[in-house]
């Protein structure tokens, strides 16, 4: 699943480490998320979206 996590994170001048800490996950998970190699749980998707001050719909690109 594609996403815009990196764009939103860079807009807020946030590092992967900071985002990981705020989302309560390891930095590697943020790396995998940004590369689209890991589909997060609904809880994590919501936390990341909230941390990046956006919504899940804007952050993740759902493909059929």
């Amino acid at each position: 699943m594609k996403n815009h996590i990196k764009d939103f994170r860079q807009k807020l001048n946030m590092t992967q480490e900071e985002l990981a800490r705020l989302a309560n996950v390891r930095r590697e998970t943020i790396v995998f998320l940004e590369q689209g190699k890991y589909n997060p749980s609904l809880g994590l998707a919501y936390t990341v979206a909230k941390t990046l001050k956006t919504s899940i719909e804007k952050l993740f690109v759902f493909e059929d």
């Binding site: 990981a20 309560n24 996950v25 390891r26 590697e28 998970t29 995998f32 890991y38 997060p40 749980s41 809880g43 994590l44």
Partner: peptide, 8 residues
């Protein structure tokens, strides 16, 4: 620090 998360 966080030891493990949902991906782990």
């Amino acid at each position: 620090e966080i030891m493990a998360d949902e991906r782990d």
